[in-house]
Write a protein that binds this DNA or RNA. Structure first.
Lengths: 204, 204
DNA sequence: GGGGTTTGTTGGCGGACTGCCAACAAGCTA
DNA sequence: TAGCTTGTTGGCAGTCCGCCAACAAACCCC
């Protein structure tokens, strides 16, 4: 007779883990967590439902892990351009940002738009950490000694950059070239003209 | 004997409906929809669980209605300042925005929490409609004949305004006065200098 | 004021989903 | 090949959602 044809194949922990995570990433990218069942994730991954509880604990834990994994992948490549010309450095940084966004389109869209109405504090913290990290990189690039106001302005700017990127990627009311110029000019103006204006303490 | 002491009181449809909606708004503001049970909403409203299905259909329908109701309340007051001075008009509009945001703090925070692609198309549409309406008001104020690029830039600006407001309300890295100046200067610069620069078609 | 009517409200049944765990078996070791 | 390790499965118990038939509070009419 033929061999019993094993009904499942054993995998190394990390391997199976990544396989489940990939399936979960796919589904959680399309629908909010409340509308994705663990049964579905298990089917998509080709394993029994109990297995994902074994690897990740609760469904919520799995979802949080998906969020983290999405934040982890994109922003790996470190800026490190550091030419003398600030304008050129900024331009290059923006270019990398746009390229990253287009390359990881699905993951990025899901991460930016994560969570529904009620904000889940943990999810919020994960996404916010990613944004604050982006601010860190800009601070290092622009003014390592920058104060509280600089960080606040840059955080607002990151909201601007995300919305502008959506105009390019989704709504298509801007070209990549236009977004690039928009982001560059706005950031330059913010830091050189507007920030000094609002940072000074006593001005009526 | 004493009267049978009615076990529940009948209310008019709209009255009961609003009562349930208020309870749902409270709970859905604190937690994502997947973590709020209809049993809880019913208890909070002081009615039987079946009743909210009677009034709103499915849980999802109730959630969508909550979203709409939150979007409906705040931005009602129409700008209508229309003095000759554009700067003064903008300043007043920004002032109203900041006041609205602080007054409806909880509701507004919850609504912006449903960022960009909530991955739920319907929720997405509702929130995005609110933002596009804000853009409409700005377009009417600034340049009624403005083109596609103007709308795109203003949409990006609304992302900027939301993030900046969070810096004031939540992270407290900016004062109200600072946010005001930041929003005013940025909008002015965007429309007067940066928009013309990116709107021109053929520029290397 | 009593009986009939309207319709707002309740309670519970059927199906689906989550969290958990004991039993099973694939693949390694001797 | 027998035994062991541990990745994997299947099902049980509790909770939640969608639905609907029955109930009863307030109203109407005589």
């Amino acid at each position: 007779m033929a061999a019993p044809a094993a009904r499942f194949t054993r995998l190394e922990r990390d391997e199976r883990r990544e396989q489940i995570l990939a399936a979960a990433r796919r589904l959680f990218s399309e629908r909010p967590p409340g509308e994705v069942s663990t049964t579905e994730v298990a089917r998509e991954a080709g394993v029994a439902r109990g297995l994902l509880h074994h690897y990740f604990g609760t469904k919520r834990d799995l979802y949080l892990e998906v969020m983290r994994s999405m934040l982890r992948y994109p922003p790996q490549p470190i800026p490190e351009v550091s030419g003398g010309d600030v304008d050129a450095v900024l331009s290059a940084a923006i270019d990398r940002w746009l390229t990253m966004v287009r390359r990881n389109r699905a993951a990025w869209l899901a991460a930016v738009g994560a969570q529904g109405l009620g904000r889940d504090p943990e999810v919020e913290a994960i996404v916010e950490a990613g944004r604050e990290a982006a601010v860190d990189r800009l601070v290092a690039l622009l003014d390592p000694d920058g104060g509280r106001e600089l960080r606040a302005v840059l955080r607002a700017y990151s909201g601007f950059a995300e919305a502008a990127s959506l105009e390019w990627l989704v709504r298509r009311r801007l070209t990549r070239e236009q977004v690039h110029r928009l982001l560059h000019s706005t950031l330059t103006t913010l830091v050189r003209s507007i920030l000094p204006e609002i940072a000074q303490k006593g001005s009526p």
